[in-house]
Measured scan of single mutants.
Amino acid sequence: MTVLPKDIPGDSLKVTVGTANGKPGDTVTVPVTFADVAKMKNVGTCNFYLGYDASLLEVVSVDAGPIVKNAAVNFSSSASNGTISFLFLDNTITDELITADGVFANIKFKLKSVTAKTTTPVTFKDGGAFGDGTMSKIASVTKTNGSVTIDP
């Protein structure tokens, strides 16, 4: 049996954390987006972790974005102690894959008090994996961190 590389060099799934701005007490939304989904033969499963400074940001909610089908079954998240974990699994293993680019999740943060303008990162942590529509590992994932700026 011969195994051929399935990824064209330079191609990767792009996962990007967005940015937001606000004043202390505001609730802002930071999107997590996927790009080049079709090039990577869709997404059938993924789990990953984001870190944030809990002294500056309070997670209000984490909701599935419009590219997630049947989110009540296929999407899960949790947030505590400065870490947000995400889990997606197409429970049907074929019919509810992520097949389009767009917003995977929206994180709502309540901004805490600061004395001066502060930009705090929302960054990928170690761990996690992504699988394509056949549940094979997506070897190349380009992750881009985001941030939230609090301006009193």
Rank of each mutant, 00 (worst) to 15 (best):
T83Y: 15
K112W: 01
T134C: 14
G127P: 02
G51Y: 11
V17S: 09
G102D: 06
V122Y: 02
K41M: 14
V114I: 08
G18N: 10
T149S: 15
D53H: 10
G127V: 03
A72E: 11
D101W: 00
A35V: 12
V37Y: 05
G146L: 04
P121T: 06
A79Y: 15
D95H: 03
V122P: 04
P152S: 10
S140D: 03
D126C: 15
K117M: 06
K110F: 02
P31C: 11
V37K: 07
T19L: 12
D7M: 05
S12D: 12
D53A: 10
V30K: 08
G51P: 14
V114A: 07
A71N: 12
S113E: 03
T27A: 11
M40I: 11
L89K: 01
D101H: 08
S113V: 06
I93W: 14
K39E: 14
V68M: 10
D11H: 13
T19K: 11
T142C: 03
D90G: 04
K117G: 04
P31K: 12
G128S: 02
G146Q: 03
P152G: 15
G127L: 02
L50K: 05
V37M: 06
T120P: 06
S80R: 15
K117R: 06
K110D: 00
S140E: 01
G102Q: 04
M1I: 11
N81S: 15
I150T: 14
Y49K: 00
A139G: 07
V43C: 10
K117H: 03
F109W: 08
S85N: 02
L89R: 02
F104P: 00
G146D: 06
S140H: 08
K39T: 11
V62F: 06
G18Y: 12
A116L: 05
V28G: 09
V28Q: 08
Y52Q: 10
A35Q: 14
L111Q: 06
V3M: 06
V122I: 06
F109V: 05
G10V: 10
P31A: 11
V60G: 08
I84A: 00
D151N: 15
G127Q: 04
K108M: 07
Y49C: 05
N81I: 15
G82R: 15
K137A: 01
P24H: 13
D36A: 13
Y52E: 03
V43H: 05
F130P: 02
L56F: 09
V122T: 07
L4M: 11
A71M: 09
I107G: 00
N145K: 07
I84C: 14
V15S: 08
V68T: 10
T115S: 07
T149A: 14
E96L: 00
A100S: 09
T27G: 08
N74F: 00
T16M: 12
G128W: 06
L4C: 12
V59D: 07
T16S: 12
D151M: 15
S55C: 12
G128L: 02
L87M: 03
V15G: 09
K14A: 13
L13H: 10
V28E: 10
N42T: 11
D126L: 15
D7K: 11
P31I: 09
L97G: 04
I8V: 12
D90L: 00
I67P: 13
A139W: 15
P121R: 12
V114S: 07
P24C: 14
F34I: 06
N47D: 03
A72P: 13
P121M: 04
V17C: 14
V122D: 01
F48W: 07
D36N: 14
K112V: 04
S55D: 14
I98W: 01
Y52F: 14
L89T: 00
G128V: 03
D132Q: 04
V3G: 12
K112M: 05
V148F: 04
T120L: 04
K112P: 03
L56M: 10
G44T: 01
F34N: 09
N106C: 03
A20T: 11
A129V: 04
S147D: 06
T118H: 06
N47Y: 01
T27W: 14
F75S: 04
T119Q: 10
V37G: 10
S76D: 14
P121N: 08
G65V: 04
T123D: 06
N81T: 15
N74L: 00
S61V: 09
N42P: 04
I150C: 15
K125V: 01
T115N: 03
K110Q: 03
F130I: 04
V37R: 07
T119K: 14
S80W: 15
N74K: 04
K143C: 00
T118V: 04
G51A: 10
V43Y: 01
V114F: 05
V43T: 10
G22A: 10
V30M: 14
T119R: 11
L89G: 01
K39Y: 09
D53S: 11
N106E: 03
T33G: 13
D95A: 06
S85K: 01
F88K: 00
I138F: 04
G44A: 03
I93N: 04
D95T: 04
I84H: 00
V32C: 09
D26R: 12
V141I: 05
M135I: 14
D11E: 09
D7H: 13
G51K: 13
S147T: 06
V37Q: 14
F48L: 07
D36C: 05
G131M: 01
T123M: 14
P66R: 12
K117V: 04
G102H: 01
V28P: 10
V141F: 02
L111A: 04
S12H: 13
F124E: 02
D151F: 15
T33L: 12
S136F: 15
S113H: 07
V62I: 13
V60Q: 10
D126F: 15
L50E: 08
G131L: 01
A72I: 12
K108E: 06
F86Y: 04
F75G: 02
S77T: 12
K69C: 15
S136W: 15
T123I: 07
L89H: 02
V62H: 08
G127C: 04
D11K: 10
K110M: 08
C46I: 01
K125C: 02
I84F: 05
S136G: 06
A71D: 12
F48H: 09
G128N: 00
N47R: 00
V114H: 08
D101A: 06
L4V: 13
V62E: 13
D7R: 14
D26N: 11
L50N: 09
A129C: 01
T123N: 08
